[in-house]
Design a protein around this nucleic acid. Structure first.
Length: 430
RNA sequence: GUGGUUGUAGCUCAGUCGGUUAGAGCGCCUGGUUGUGGCCCAGGAGGUCGGGGGUUCGAGUCCCCUCAUCCACCCCA
């Protein structure tokens, strides 16, 4: 216990779970790659205004959840609370021409100063994508199809896609007035936050979970009804495209999401898995128009982010205990000081042939060494002792078959490597 | 930020109404005659009972504070 625990809301991730995470990421690289998305790695830390202007200053995230500090040059920096703003900054920095499109995939840690709970960490990890530069309903739909493909590829199928549209900025100005008129007569009966939101940001009222407010939200007109003709047409096209792809969705009339930059399509994937707890949103995203310092005009894009912790929970792989070392193929047992040199040399020859080797380092009894050979999961145990040395041989024991044989020391390494048959390529550590 | 929950061995946990040397299972180590794993048997190591203060003859147990955990609210991935 003591002071060695990681900070609240953060955690150490050990093998073999760490390998499972890498697999989730690699599956994403592969599936997103099928749609032409390529990886972009941006810094974890950015100038604060990248997020304030990118995400919107009236959002929960920038108002009270960012890890912001001042560096020695007196600049205000923050640990990224989400991925889109940084990706857009990188793209704007490189420049996007009129009509040009960029498709990027990213993954990594994000930071938010919230109270930890099931499926919510202060350092959490996202896999995300952004298709930037184009504004078409088909692209929005394709993004959601890709999300479906990915979820199924990692073995998740009990989820629902929630869909809505918030229209354009002009639509929202009109809609805001309508919503304000709708809620104003009831302000006195609503919560403190909503009373403030009525004039500062009515949209946030739609997200309010306070019982009293929800009643009024339920009676509010569906957002879509408040949008312009063209925005509604856009939304209709998105739905038709999804139908054509055979993707099931539910229109959530008051889904608006917490980030200001969304325009038109917004969506969320919620899980019905019993392993999730209250935080059941696996992924969220939508179409956006984002403003960044230095860019002449807002840049359009569509994208979504998946929460890796929640993916892990939804898959519900039982927690395994860490064995303290990675998987190995061979354990080399040593009997007597004389055999040490031979054993160490053999271990190097094997590793040079991509065989994973654990070698005795303590000079314990043969019994203790064999016990280790068994517990470490090695397929073969190699015994090097006085008898073997004298005969110029080594003993190879097949642990699963309880059979053993002597082979010439000279050909030991190639022979063992051949026996194991190196099915994995050298880079395939996972 | 607000509520509640839990903190005892490496892990999962038991510990009665306060009572003297704090337990179990698993794991780990060593043995069970010569150089062979798993099963079994015997033994061993390992604990500031999260930390601090208080009440008491006596606190793992009761009280206060604190730290951490988990969960819910909230928010979102």
């Amino acid at each position: 216990m003591g002071k060695l625990e990681p900070l609240p809301g953060t955690s150490d991730l050990w093998h073999p779970e760490a390998a499972e995470w890498v697999r989730l990421e690699n599956t994403a690289r592969r599936v997103m790659g099928l749609y032409g998305y390529a990886e972009l790695r941006t810094p974890i830390i950015e100038r604060t205004d990248v997020f304030v202007r990118g995400i919107g200053s009236d959002t929960e995230v920038v108002q009270k959840e960012m890890y912001t500090f001042t560096d020695r040059g007196d600049r205000s920096l923050t640990l990224r609370p989400e991925g889109t703003a940084g990706v857009m900054r990188a793209i704007a920095n490189q420049g996007v021409g009129e009509g040009e499109e960029k498709r990027v995939f990213y993954c990594g840690p994000m930071f938010r100063g919230e109270r930890p709970a099931a499926g919510r960490k202060r350092q959490f990890h996202q896999i995300g994508v952004e298709a930037v530069g184009k504004l078409t309903p088909l692209l929005d739909a394709e993004s959601m199809v890709m999300l479906f493909d990915y979820l199924r590829a990692v073995g998740i199928d009990d989820f629902r896609l929630l869909l809505n549209s918030r229209g354009t900025r002009e639509d929202r100005q009109d809609a805001s007035r309508t919503l304000q008129e709708h809620f104003r007569p009831h302000v006195e009966e609503m919560c403190e936050d909503c009373r403030r939101r009525l004039d500062s940001n009515v949209w946030r009222i739609l997200d309010c979970k306070v019982e009293a407010c929800r009643g009024f939200v339920a009676q509010a007109p569906p957002i879509v009804d408040l949008l312009s003709e063209t925005s509604r047409a856009y939304f209709g096209q998105v739905q038709r495209a999804l139908d054509a792809f055979g993707i099931a969705y539910e229109v959530a009339p008051h889904l608006v999401r917490g980030l200001d930059y969304y325009e038109h399509t917004v969506f969320e994937v919620v899980s019905d898995s019993p392993h999730l707890g209250a935080q059941n949103a696996l992924a969220g995203g939508g179409r956006y128009l984002i403003e960044l310092p230095g860019s002449r005009k807002p840049i359009p894009g569509v994208g979504f982010a998946l929460g890796m912790e929640r993916l892990m929970m939804a898959r519900h792989r039982p927690r395994q205990e860490s064995p303290g070392h990675g998987p190995v193929d061979v354990f080399i047992a040593i009997l007597g000081d004389q055999a040490e040199v031979c054993a160490l040399q053999l271990s190097r020859e094997l590793r040079a042939r991509q065989v994973r080797v654990l070698c005795e380092t303590e000079g314990r009894s043969i019994k203790a060494q064999m016990r280790t050979a068994d517990k470490c999961g090695a397929e073969l145990a190699v015994i090097v002792g006085g008898e073997e040395l004298a005969a110029g041989q080594v003993t190879v024991k097949y642990m699963r078959e309880s059979r053993q044989e002597q082979i010439d020391r000279e050909h030991a390494a190639p022979s063992i490597a051949a026996t194991l048959g190196r099915k994995e390529d050298p880079e395939g550590m996972y």
